[in-house]
C-alpha cells in the first residue's frame, strides 16, 4: 500500500510539471526546455519571498504564485514574443538558452548549496498516517490535492471558457485563428503564464518536501517523458503518461535497484518514440517536432 501511495504522489508531481509542457506545446508547438528551470525558479521565489517579505507560509506561497505569473508573462513578452512566426527550432533553442541562463542566475543569487525552504517559512512537513501502514508527508498530500485542482481547473478552462477555446483553436490552426480575429499574442502569453504558474507550484511543493538546489531542475526533464508518452498536446494524456512513468519508476526502485530512478523515464521515452511517436493521446499527423 505504501508503494501505491508513493506512485500517486510521484504521478502528481510529474503530472503537474508535465501540464506546463503540454500547455505551451498545445498552443504554439514549442517545446519549452526551460520548464524545469522555471519550476525551480518558482521555489527560489518562495525562498526570496519568505526571507524578504512575509514569513507566514500561506502568504509567502500566495505571493510566490503571483510572482510566478509575472515571470511567465515576462518570459513570453520579453523573449518568446519575438519568436512568434519564426521557425519552431529557433523558439526551442531560445528556451534552451533561457534554461541555461536561469540556472546560472539562480546559482549566482542563491548559491549552489542546498537550502531548506520548509524551515525558512516554518512549514511543518509532518508525516501523516493515512492508514496504519501508509504514511505520506504533508507537502506530498498538498501536491496531490494541487495537481487534482490544477487539472480540473485547466480542463474546465480549456473547454468551457472562450479564452480556453481560443487556446485550443490557435493550437489547431494559428493562421485561421488570426483570420478570425483572435489575438495570438494574448493566447500565447496566457499559455506561458499558466504553464509557469503550474510549474512553479510543482517546484514549491516538491522543494517543501525535500530541500532545494539548482540541480532539481532535472525533475523538469524527468517529467518531459510523461508529457510525451501522453502525446504532448493532450492534458489527460499527460496525466496518464505521468502515471505510467511514476509507476515504473517506483516499482523498479523498490524491486530492482534505486539507482534506476533517473533512467526509467528516459527508457520509457525511447520506447514510446520507437513504438508510438505521437504518444498515447497525441495528434497523429504532426510529427515534424524539434
Amino acid at each position: 500500500m505504501q508503494i501505491l501511495a508513493n506512485i500517486v504522489v510521484l504521478t502528481s508531481l510529474y503530472a503537474l510539471v508535465a501540464c506546463g509542457y503540454v500547455l505551451v506545446y498545445k498552443v504554439s508547438r514549442v517545446l519549452n526546455l526551460a520548464h524545469g528551470e522555471l519550476m525551480i525558479l518558482g521555489a527560489y521565489l518562495l525562498v526570496a519571498t519568505s526571507a524578504g517579505i512575509a514569513s507566514d507560509p500561506l502568504v509567502a506561497i500566495a505571493l510566490t504564485a503571483m510572482f510566478s505569473i509575472v515571470v511567465g508573462l515576462s518570459v513570453y513578452l520579453l523573449l518568446m514574443r519575438k519568436m512568434t512566426g519564426q521557425p519552431v527550432l529557433a523558439a526551442v533553442l531560445t528556451t534552451v538558452a533561457l534554461g541555461i541562463l536561469l540556472r546560472g542566475a539562480m546559482v549566482l543569487i542563491w548559491g549552489p548549496q542546498q537550502l531548506n525552504v520548509g524551515a525558512m517559512i516554518s512549514f511543518d512537513n509532518a508525516s501523516i498516517a493515512l492508514t496504519d501502514s501508509v504514511r505520506v508527508s504533508t507537502a506530498a498530500l498538498w501536491l496531490v490535492v494541487c495537481t487534482f485542482l490544477v487539472y480540473l481547473g485547466l480542463l474546465a478552462f480549456l473547454h468551457m471558457s472562450r479564452w480556453g477555446m481560443r487556446m485550443r483553436a490557435s493550437g489547431q490552426n494559428a493562421l485561421l485563428a488570426a483570420q478570425r480575429g483572435i489575438n495570438l499574442h494574448t493566447v500565447y502569453a496566457l499559455a506561458w503564464t499558466l504553464s509557469t504558474f503550474s510549474g512553479s507550484l510543482a517546484g514549491v511543493l516538491v522543494t517543501l518536501d525535500s530541500r532545494i538546489d539548482v540541480n532539481m531542475a532535472v525533475i523538469g526533464l524527468k517529467a518531459f517523458p510523461a508529457a510525451l508518452v501522453g502525446g504532448l498536446d493532450s492534458l489527460p494524456g499527460a496525466l496518464i503518461g505521468a502515471g505510467v512513468i511514476a509507476a515504473l519508476e517506483v516499482l523498479l526502485i523498490h524491486y530492482v535497484n534505486p539507482l534506476l530512478s533517473d533512467v526509467v523515464p528516459f527508457l520509457v521515452l525511447i520506447a514510446i518514440l520507437i513504438v508510438r511517436p505521437w504518444g498515447l493521446y497525441g495528434t497523429k499527423e504532426e510529427l515534424n517536432r524539434v
Binding site: 477555446m165 490552426n173 493562421l175 485561421l176 485563428a177 483570420q179 478570425r180
Partner: peptide
C-alpha cells in the same frame, strides 16, 4: 477584421478539434 474585412480561406477553414458551436463561439467579438 476590426474594420470589417473577413476572409473565408480556401483550405483549413474550420477548427477541426472544436465543435460546430465552439467554432462559432471562439470567434473574437
Amino acid at each position: 477584421i476590426h474594420k470589417g474585412i473577413v476572409l473565408v480561406p480556401e483550405r483549413d477553414k474550420v477548427f477541426t478539434n472544436l465543435t460546430v458551436a465552439e467554432n462559432l463561439e471562439v470567434v473574437s467579438t
